[in-house]
Design a binder for these strands. Structure first.
Lengths: 109, 109
DNA sequence: ATAAGTACCTTGTATTGCAAAGTATCAAAA
DNA sequence: TTTTGATACTTTGCAATACAAGGTACTTAT
């Protein structure tokens, strides 16, 4: 019964995940598992079934590209990187995020 | 083509709206239109078709109650108020929100 | 060969924000 | 009295999306 906590967080994450992905990829290329690790390190738990469709969507929107790279252990990895269009979107999302933080702040006051 | 901006904001709002409602009602009772006004004042545009089902959901979850009140001009208004359970949920959401802000901050760093 | 580990992908479901259209109440104008 | 306009609440249908669960494929070690 105590996943109320997790439900609340899950709801709040909606729509912010796409922003997180762009944030991560704006710094370095990464493949799915490493993205999940980065999110986990920031206390944002995400599972594969969420991330893969999201990456594909962003790729289809032209925000991301990818390249295959061999791995020393295991199958090849799909390294995603951010595009110019992705950076533009990220800039919009930065603004949207700041505005939302500001909005909540206003409501709290 | 320039509603990209609005789409981005719309996505980010997802899941945070419930939090906003509780924030507003934790301070004072309010009816739908006045809630929309409060959100608008905080730069969060929400329409009726979004708000009404949300209020009903939260009421069914026991987070809100309401009472009818006559209006000097127009039909009676449904004034919503927050319950004890709603305040507990709000406390959880406060924590979840702070964590999310912190998470994004971590990713940005 | 087989098993284990790693990585990527797909399907089905529930939730939810929203546009659009509908219902109901009240008061003032025609 | 009827009609119009303003206000308020409600419902329906749709699209987007996070997630659980299950599946495919490649590599290395046993």
């Amino acid at each position: 019964m105590e996943n109320t906590n997790e439900n609340v967080r899950s709801q709040m994450r909606k729509g912010v995940l796409e922003y997180c992905i762009l944030c991560i990829l704006s710094k370095r290329e990464a493949y799915a598992s490493s993205i999940i690790d980065a999110l986990k390190a920031a206390n944002m738990i995400v599972v594969e079934g969420t991330l893969y469709p999201l990456l594909i969507r962003q790729k289809n929107q032209g925000l991301l590209t990818y390249r295959w790279e061999e791995s020393t252990q295991g199958p090849p990895r799909k390294y995603y990187g951010i595009t110019e269009k992705g950076r533009a979107q990220l800039a919009e999302m930065d603004a949207a995020w700041r505005e939302m933080v500001e909005s909540i702040d206003t409501l709290k006051r």
